[in-house]
Design a protein around this nucleic acid. Structure first.
Length: 945
RNA sequence: GCCGGGUUGGCGGAAUGGUAGACGCGACGGUCUCAAAAACCGUUGUCCGCAAGGGCGUGCGGGUUCGAGUCCCGCACCCGGCACCA
């Protein structure tokens, strides 16, 4: 990879010289604290003049494999933005921390016996070294890792805040539990069943309180992954029912686990998306994930049953077409309503050939329970069985049969539906299978061939004595039927969500311990601030108990439970020293990243997560209605619903509790694309080293690929060790220098688009920087070549057009076109032999955000003692944006037939005359009658004949 | 199936409705050199033509317009997300 620089000119900008320049400037920046950003108050307080700009990268997990050239793409981009902003006069906060809890370090620990902290810290050190060599303008004082005890302390502190809060639906915000307790004690509030606080036992009181906490322990169906030995959040399970990490099967098990009540924030999490500058795709993914749907809850009474069946539907307007009902097999009411015997005339297929409904239901339930989620998904054929019971349709008194079927899911809505085969494809399919009546309640367009009509139309077949929906549009009918149902106590308008509460405990070692202990009554108690952080104990074995991936019946067993001397602890929590039992689960590795944006703003504050003044300065709303948050957050799209949803949730809780002034953590989000790579396999399917593959053209001119004389197959995808196609930044530093590497990555294409890495193309960026260097420095003597000559008109024009364009490109993060414009300017200066300071100084300043070391070096050789970090970015002179002459295109019938050089302020008449006189235009018109002439002086004349 | 995004030379890509292919890689030719590399200069969408010039060309089919890669309608394919969510 290393290109030997064989005796070039002694002062040529080679990789060796670039490396020397780069490391020298990196040392100087570090020594001078060039990129330290002052805070309004606290230990980092300083002069905060000018506007502020807070930039963040999605912080990295420090992998043992080190970086490949794809990783720094986003970091370079944010660095360019930050450097540009500094030159615009902003106080720029840009730092990088490390998301250091996580599975790989734990797996490494299990394999080697080395403590995960040791391994993680050496990985961080290696990554810091690789990134320092890139020349990133970070404030090093603000870096941290989530495993630092000081950081962990605040992660645990936030957990306690959430644990000590509840969601007040009336006020639409989280409030401290202490306020709820006060309302109970004062009698302002009674338990949901009406019991007064004074009549409850202490245990009943804490159960009541615990039931509304935003962080709570709950026994409910969770995703149990025996292969990983831990439970997982819904967001960590793929659509195929496997773990996102490791791709192990996931089973639904009823287990006692910690959860976070993120569902309380469903509406705000959806609604506030509209106020943020995020890619529409990510907003949509979050909307999708939360899955809000408006509809109605409707009660269908059942003969001889006190409790009606409640259903959720988004189409209450179709209720007159409800011809049967379906409950999920797991629904609570199934046992109660299943009849003793089949009613007379029960069609044979409804019974599944069972003697009694009880038997049929039991058999069906057993079969449904044996299916995994995946099997349920794969087989979409509608099956079900009749319960023997009938319910009454509240709008028309019709008796309709009640089935159980696994196409109705227990976890969504009420776990029961009214089935409308005329208006729902799934219901229609089921109705066809079981011979159920089909009533259409919306007029389908002519030519509709039956089946379920789900589109728009006028309502039909929908009337009772008091209510007629017939002739209404769907929306109108929905409103009408909801108010009728409400009047008759049979239902109400309501909203349901797909989002489930966030499963927050993991059975792993390498995560934050919970700041929770249990008392003798097994009630969870939050530890006081003074006892934070709770640090991880040393353990004999880091691994959780893992199982055969398919062992669905296994049970989670966290590693911390194996340290009884840590688990059982004597503490004084206010009523004297007592024995307590520690929570042995750990937090998921999303915990630290759910709030880290706050810590950058005040990284060493010993008393608070961040001082309110620092938070308000860096994150606060800029104007009324603004959510506040980080000014620019750059990262991959893979965190669209995981990290980005969790972080928004925590931020909103902290906002509600008054700890922050911003409503959202990230005001503007930008998803960078990925750098992909080619990989090559031989005829046995093994990967061969990509950097030794040769490209040859075959007879047809198509490229073919060869390794060791044998043809190999090319595939396109990720960069990875096992694919033998990794290219590291270190290799690029050695071969070209960091600036060349930076310029190449920024010039490859738009930042949000993925693109293939091509090592051989990097040289283009180096040639460009060498041309800039050669413009200013004599390659033989090292002498400065810049002079003080006046600029000619053409150069003035090119220079100002470039300045104008580059400014716009920088602002919009179009670095690829910014680089192209700088190359054009450089090529112009080279060709014209212009070395005037009036041209090269702006060029150096504009290049500096992209190639900062070269920029500083040239700036200093130009005689400036200070770093150019805060030097104003060049501003175009409008007087020179127009040139002395422009090329006017003459079109005949829309085709370009001639070009004429004209003055930019030529009149329409004059231009038309010149255009009509152009010889080739005359020939094209060929004597035909001119019907119309469109003139857009000075650039275009279009002639219609 | 639903929701997003995309499709431009050999390759990465550029183009406020107004010269399609900026800039870069590669390829080809040249300068320098004993030679090679590096560097520098030039050519490079495609077809016809000695040239002047002309035909064709931004996934496909229509439309709007003096003029469409760009706007509208329909379709194909690719990528990402969701999916028996009532």
């Amino acid at each position: 990879m290393t290109t030997p620089d064989l005796t070039p000119a002694p002062h040529r900008y080679t990789s060796a010289l670039a490396g020397e320049i780069e490391q020298r400037w990196q040392d100087r920046w570090a020594a001078d604290g060039t990129f330290e950003a002052p805070n309004p108050v606290g230990d980092l307080a300083g002069d905060v003049a000018g506007d502020k700009y807070f930039i963040m990268d999605m912080f990295p997990y420090p992998s043992g494999a080190g970086l490949h050239v794809g990783h720094p793409l986003g970091y370079i981009a944010t660095d360019v933005v930050g450097r540009y902003r500094r030159m615009r006069g902003d106080n720029v906060l840009h730092a990088l921390g490390y998301d250091a809890f996580g599975l790989p370090a734990e797996i490494h620990a299990v394999q080697t016996g080395e403590h995960p902290r040791t391994n993680t810290e050496s990985n961080i050190a290696n990554m810091r070294r690789q990134l320092r060599r890139l020349g990133l303008a970070h404030d090093p004082r603000r870096s941290f890792a989530t495993i630092d005890p000081d950081f962990m302390r605040w992660t645990q502190w936030i957990f306690v805040q959430i644990f000590e809060s509840w969601y007040d639906e009336e006020q639409g915000r989280a409030r401290p539990i202490s306020e709820l307790r006060a309302e109970y004690e004062s009698g302002a509030r009674t338990a949901p069943d009406g019991t007064a606080w004074g009549d409850l036992t202490p245990i009943e009181r804490s159960v009541l309180i615990d039931s509304v906490r935003l962080a709570y322990v709950d026994e409910s169906p969770v995703n149990w992954c025996p292969g990983l030995g831990t439970v997982l959040a819904n967001e960590e399970v793929t659509a195929e029912g496997r773990s996102e990490r490791g791709n192990f099967p996931v089973f639904t098990r009823n287990l006692r686990q910690w959860k976070m009540r993120i569902t309380a924030y469903s509406d705000r999490l959806i609604d506030d998306l509209d106020r943020m500058d995020w890619p529409e795709s990510v907003k949509n993914m979050q909307r999708n994930w939360i899955g809000r749907s408006h509809g109605a809850r409707i009660s269908f009474p059942v003969d001889g049953l006190a409790t009606p069946i409640d259903v959720f539907t988004t189409r209450p307007d179709t209720i007159f077409g409800a011809t049967y009902m379906v409950l999920a097999p797991e629904h609570d009411l199934v046992d109660q309503l299943t009849a003793e015997a089949w009613p007379d005339d029960t069609p044979r297929p409804w019974t599944n050939s069972a003697e009694t409904p009880t038997e049929a239901v039991a058999a069906y339930r057993a079969m449904a329970a044996a299916k995994t989620d995946l099997e349920r998904q794969e087989n979409k054929e509608k099956t079900g069985v009749f319960t023997g019971a009938y319910a009454v349709n509240p709008v028309n008194g019709a008796e309709i049969p009640v089935f159980i079927a696994d196409y109705v899911l227990t976890g969504y809505g009420t776990g029961a539906i009214m089935a409308v085969p005329g208006g729902d494809e799934r219901d229609h399919e089921f109705a066809e299978t079981y011979g159920l009546p089909i009533i259409h309640t919306v007029q389908a367009p002519e030519g509709f061939d039956g089946g379920a009509w789900t589109g728009q139309g006028k309502v039909i077949n929908s009337a009772n004595d008091e209510l007629s929906l017939d002739g209404m549009e769907i929306d109108e009918a929905k409103a009408a039927v909801i108010s009728w149902l409400q009047l008759h106590g049979a239902g109400e308008g309501t909203t349901t969500y797909r989002l489930r509460d966030w499963l927050f405990s993991r059975q792993r070692y390498w995560g934050e311990p919970f700041p929770i202990v249990y008392d003798e009554a097994d009630q969870p108690i939050a530890l006081p601030d003074s006892m934070l952080p709770v640090e991880l104990p040393e353990v004999p074995d880091y691994s959780p108990k893992t199982y055969e991936p398919e062992d669905a019946g296994s049970n989670p067993e966290p590693p911390l439970a194996r340290v009884p001397e840590w688990v059982n602890v004597e503490l004084d929590l206010g009523d004297g020293p007592k024995m307590y039992r520690r929570e042995t689960n750990t937090m998921p590795n999303w915990a630290g990243s759910s709030w880290y944006e706050l810590r950058y703003t005040d990284p060493h504050n010993p008393d608070r997560i961040t001082d309110p003044e620092n938070e308000r300065y860096w994150l606060g709303p800029r104007e009324a209605g603004d959510t506040g948050g980080v000014d620019l957050y750059v990262g991959g799209v893979e965190h669209a619903v995981l990290h980005l949803l969790y972080a928004r949730f925590w931020h909103k809780v902290l906002f509600d509790l008054g700890h922050v002034s911003s409503e959202e953590p990230f005001r503007k989000l930008f998803n960078q694309g990925y750098i992909q790579a080619y990989a090559y396999t031989d005829d046995r399917g093994s990967y061969v080293p990509a950097d030794q593959v040769e490209e040859k053209l075959d007879d047809a001119g198509h490229p073919t690929y060869w390794f060791n004389g044998a043809q190999v197959n090319r595939e396109y995808g990720k960069m990875g060790k096992s694919l033998k196609n990794v290219v590291t930044p270190d290799e690029m530093y050695d071969a070209y220098g960091a600036d060349t590497f930076r310029v190449y990555e920024m010039s490859m294409g738009p930042l949000d688009v993925s693109r293939p890495w091509e090592t051989r193309a990097v040289v283009g960026a180096q040639r460009f920087l060498q041309r800039v260097w050669r413009l200013l420095v004599d390659e033989e003597t090292g002498e400065l070549l810049a002079d003080n000559s006046e600029l000619d008109a053409a150069t003035l024009h090119v220079l100002n057009v470039t300045i104008d364009g580059v400014r716009g490109d920088m602002h919009d993060m179009r670095f690829n076109t910014a680089v192209a414009k700088l190359i054009e300017l450089t090529n112009h200066l080279t060709k014209a032999g212009v070395r005037s300071r009036a041209a090269v100084e702006p060029l150096v300043l504009m290049l500096a955000p992209l190639a900062p070391h070269l920029g500083e070096e040239l700036w200093s050789r130009l005689g400036h003692a200070e770093s150019l970090t805060h030097e104003p970015f060049p501003v175009a002179d409008p007087a020179h944006l127009t040139s002395a002459s422009v090329t006017c295109v003459v079109q005949v019938l829309g085709k370009v037939r001639g070009k004429i050089e004209v003055s930019p302020d030529i009149s329409d008449e004059e231009l038309t005359a010149l255009a009509l006189a152009e010889p080739n235009v005359v020939r094209s018109i060929d004597g035909r009658e001119i019907r119309k002439v469109i003139v857009r002086a000075p650039k275009l004349v279009s002639i219609v004949v």
